[in-house]
């Protein structure tokens, strides 16, 4: 368990949030032209990194807004949090 700094509400317990998986997976611009392999890659394949990972989270029991998080999955340490649409920080 850890504390998350929601960019809209401030510090809250992690149990108020829901993890939305890997961030920055871009939805295909032309879905009709995708091969089965490309669909599998988009839908199912994940980096599942042990270490610094980029993720989406939602403040489910709060403002219900989505945001991005950079987190070290080996020790749950949060490196950065930034809003949707913003670029990830260069320095972590």
């Amino acid at each position: 368990m850890f504390v998350i700094h929601c960019p809209y509400c401030g510090k809250r317990e992690q149990s108020e949030f829901k993890a939305g998986g890997e961030a920055h997976i871009v939805r295909p611009k032309q879905p009709t032209e995708l091969s089965d392999d490309q669909w599998a890659e988009y839908l199912f394949m994940r980096k599942n990194i042990k270490g610094v990972q980029f993720e989406r989270w939602v403040h489910a029991h709060g403002c219900r807004k989505w945001f991005n998080m950079v987190r070290d999955t080996s020790n749950d340490e949060i490196k950065a949090i930034y809003k949707m649409g913003e670029k990830p920080p260069r320095k972590l």
């Binding site: 993890a19 990972q53 020790n75």
Partner: peptide, 14 residues
């Protein structure tokens, strides 16, 4: 399970 990816071998209290 917790709903987030983690390799920390400890879960959330809730």
């Amino acid at each position: 399970t917790d709903d987030y990816v983690s390799y920390s071998q400890k879960g959330s209290h809730d």
